[in-house]
């Protein structure tokens, strides 16, 4: 565990908490893509199946359980409790366009052709693009609430910090996992446009709105 990895995990945890609090406090999930949240629930479920087969540390197990539980809690709030506030007219990204290629890629490019390994690879690939329905929704409505921007910034920072962690580990531990690194780069690149808007607008107190 190095500082980048820890900072990444904290950013990830913060993102998940911000989202749950935003929905809970405002009693509304307006502006949030249920499709992205569904993809994240699939990501955590398929990746953290190793909770049942490998014990690493208390920290590791607790974080995995928290991410799985929070993703299902978010789905529950969006699709059940605050369903009336779910903005499904703007949440129209076709997730099969992500799920089908990601499944094919996981079957073709993996470390080992076993069920758990393919599910892990699938979750890494899916995570890299899971935010697209959310970004699509923001671009479609042309704006995002500040709290939604903070959520997106924290979530995007998490994988960017993991990239620094992998650079550190490559130099100091000789560790290199091309699947995670390439997917992590793709994931971070997808946020670049948003990061730019966040820094130039939201941090200066303005609402995140896109040019028409």
């Amino acid at each position: 565990m190095n500082i980048f990895r820890l900072a990444g995990d904290i950013a990830h945890l913060l993102a998940v908490i911000i989202l749950l609090l935003k929905i809970w406090k405002s009693r509304s999930c307006a502006g949030i893509s249920g499709r992205s949240q569904l993809l994240f629930a699939i990501v955590y479920t398929t990746r953290y199946l190793d909770l049942l087969t490998n014990f690493v540390s208390i920290y590791n197990s607790v974080m995995k359980v928290v991410f799985i539980a929070a993703s299902y809690a978010t789905l529950y709030l969006m699709y059940m409790k605050f369903k009336a506030t779910y903005d499904h007219n703007h949440d129209t990204f076709r997730i099969e366009f992500l799920l089908i290629p990601v499944t094919a890629l996981a079957l073709l490019v993996n470390h080992e052709f076993s069920v758990l390994e393919i599910l892990w690879t699938f979750s890494i690939y899916l995570e890299s693009v899971a935010i697209l329905p959310q970004l699509f929704m923001v671009s479609k409505t042309g704006e995002a609430e500040s709290i939604t921007s903070h959520y997106l910034f924290a979530l995007g920072s998490y994988r960017a910090l993991y990239l620094l962690n992998w650079i550190y580990r490559y130099y100091f531990e000789g560790f290199f996992d091309p699947i995670a690194v390439v997917a992590g780069v793709v994931q971070t690149v997808l946020y670049c446009d948003f990061f730019y808007l966040y820094i130039t607008k939201v941090l200066k107190g303005k609402k995140l709105s896109l040019p028409a």
């Binding site: 995990d9 990830h12 490998n54 690493v56 540390s57 974080m63 892990w120 560790f175």
Partner: peptide, 10 residues
């Protein structure tokens, strides 16, 4: 080893 690293990272 790398297999253990995989389970360690989140």
């Amino acid at each position: 080893d790398d297999a253990a690293d995989k389970h360690d990272e989140l």
